[in-house]
Design a protein around this nucleic acid. Structure first.
Lengths: 153, 153
DNA sequence: CCGATATACTTGCTTTGTTAAATATTAAAC
DNA sequence: GTTTAATATTTAACAAAGCAAGTATATCGG
């Protein structure tokens, strides 16, 4: 008697896998871009976050840039050494570390702004502006969901 | 004279970052599920791909499962040892390695089928069936794009 | 056939991811 | 005020990602 097929969703229609594949696709040109200046994808995210939001505590950066705090801690040192950011400890709460982007970090972002815009423009052209906006809307909505199962409460 | 702001897209509307954040969100419950059987997220993807497509060469698996070949190479050995897959070298081209899922690997997939379906159902309920399908359609379309810039040809 | 290329993986090394256990400061509760 | 409990990060240790260079076939041009 034949076993019933395991019947998971086709990987193409599996949300986690689809998100991953889509991201790989999108990251291709961006990796090419970043490779030229020697910044890693993660450092780039950190830079973008502090550039966008201004000086932030490590925990907030980790949250915004999708990094674990421990990973962030490790990469901050080198980033300061490379002159991309500055770190300070606010006197009113000396547990915290606040990171700000440096002029050199800003310069790095500016240096990639044109390329970055071109990549985005190309994607918009290939994919369609409306669909891209729609996709971003859906992704934004997805992030706001509460998916913690009733498993743990 | 003030410099023009670097003007990158807000990270919230940056596709790479949005995809990453969305994926983190979606992976939460799945990580809980996989933790119970000790398979890593990557091994799970490999299993799912060979289960779905049948025996595949390493390069193809790497492509489908979004892994680097080098990462795949390093995880195949342990997976064979765990009895999840089998590896063979086709005599007609001894450079290649072909991986197939084992009965035990199939069993592992079956063991998670129910949980997996439940997670998906919950997501469908929270997010809405229509929107979820729409999102999957958009992601699938995105994967089919050709984004290689005219940069290199 | 034979050297030159191209393929398909492997390995070595550095950076990140992950988890668990410290450290350092603050804030709270006697 | 001093222990006690929270916060905010740091460290340690080991698996996995990512990149560059190396190895083992296969294939091709002459």
């Amino acid at each position: 008697m034949p076993e019933p097929a395991p019947q998971l969703r086709q990987t193409r229609r599996s949300l986690p896998i689809a998100l991953l594949r889509a991201r790989e696709q999108v990251m291709g040109p961006i990796r090419d871009m970043l490779a030229q200046s020697g910044v890693s994808e993660q450092k780039w995210r950190v830079l973008r976050v502090v550039q966008e939001k201004g000086p932030l505590e490590l925990s907030q950066i980790a949250e915004e840039a999708c990094l674990l705090l421990s990973s962030l801690t490790r990469m901050i040192g080198p980033m300061v050494a490379e002159g991309l950011i500055t770190r300070t400890t606010p006197p009113e709460d000396r547990r915290k570390t606040v990171v700000a982007i440096s002029p050199q970090g800003e310069a790095l972002i500016r240096a990639h702004a044109a390329d970055s815009a071109a990549i985005f423009a190309r994607m918009e052209a290939e994919f369609g502006e409306a669909r891209l906006e729609q996709l971003l809307d859906l992704l934004e909505a997805l992030q706001r969901l509460d998916l913690r199962g009733s498993r743990q409460g």
